[in-house]
Amino acid sequence: MKSTDLLLDGFTRIDDEVREIASGLSKEQLEHRLDPDGNSLSWLLWHISRVQDAQVADIAGTEQVWITEGWAERLGLGLDPADTGYGYTSAQVAAVRGVSAEELVAYHESTFARTSEVIGSLDDDDLARVIDESYDPPVTVAVRLMSILADDFEHVGQAGYVRGLVLRR
């Protein structure tokens, strides 16, 4: 197994979980917040895709599918195209609404397709390439991909938990 196969397996698991978590949920269920400042499923699923999209595009030196495929307009959230949800306030989380489960999944599938394409084009030399020297040690492509996976796994776990509670209401 190559390193890129392992990375792709991780992103495939995220993709599977996003589809499973969103499946069959109404907009109301997606927008429910467990408390006034909690993250909704809409925000969690959107953020998983946005972080992956933005950071993979940075690694590849390409535009994000959020822009190139028109997802910023298609989802109609009225957000700055550079927004990924990082550091959002409670009010900003609440503004990620009005998007269906199908739309969230479709955006994620576009993001995952691009991620798969980028990872499939990498070799071990590419994974060792330094992309951010502001850290000690500097961040490589491999480290950034693992960071994206860690963030996505954290949020997909949260989304699975929130889904379970929303369905029990």
Rank of each mutant, 00 (worst) to 15 (best):
A60S: 07
E28P: 04
T4C: 08
D126V: 15
P137K: 05
W46N: 01
D126M: 10
R144T: 12
L122A: 04
E69H: 08
D136C: 09
V51F: 02
S134T: 15
E73I: 14
T62M: 12
R169D: 11
R144P: 05
V166T: 08
Q29I: 12
I148G: 02
V56G: 06
D5M: 03
I59M: 00
M1L: 15
R144V: 15
Q29H: 05
F112V: 12
Y161W: 11
I59G: 06
S121E: 08
D53K: 03
Y161H: 09
A91E: 01
Y107C: 06
L41A: 06
L165P: 04
D125K: 13
T62Y: 07
E102K: 09
L44F: 03
R114M: 12
S26Q: 11
L45K: 03
R114D: 07
Q55I: 10
E102P: 08
S110N: 06
S90Y: 00
S110F: 09
L25E: 08
D15H: 13
T140C: 04
H155V: 09
L44C: 09
F112L: 14
R144S: 13
L25C: 09
R33S: 09
V141L: 06
Q92M: 02
R33M: 07
A142E: 14
S121Q: 10
Y86I: 15
A128Q: 08
G157Y: 04
L45Q: 03
S90K: 01
Q158W: 12
A60N: 03
A60C: 09
L79S: 05
D16V: 15
L127R: 02
S100P: 03
D53W: 04
I48C: 00
A142L: 15
I119T: 05
L6C: 10
A113E: 07
A60R: 03
W71K: 01
G78V: 09
G98M: 07
V18Y: 05
D9W: 05
S121P: 00
D9H: 07
G98S: 10
L30T: 04
G78N: 03
H155I: 08
P81L: 11
R163E: 07
L127A: 06
D136Q: 10
Q55A: 11
T111S: 11
A54H: 02
I119G: 01
A113S: 05
R169L: 14
V139W: 00
Y135T: 12
F112N: 08
D125P: 08
I14E: 01
Q92E: 01
N39E: 09
E109R: 14
Y107W: 05
T140W: 05
V162T: 13
S23V: 15
L149Y: 05
G87P: 02
V105L: 06
L104W: 04
H155C: 02
D124E: 11
R144Y: 11
H47D: 00
A94G: 07
D136K: 07
A95P: 03
E31I: 11
D126Y: 11
I59K: 02
V18F: 06
E17M: 14
S116G: 01
P138Q: 02
I119E: 00
P137G: 01
Y86C: 14
P36V: 10
P138K: 02
G98F: 06
E31A: 13
G120L: 03
D125A: 15
I59W: 02
L75V: 13
A101G: 11
Y161D: 00
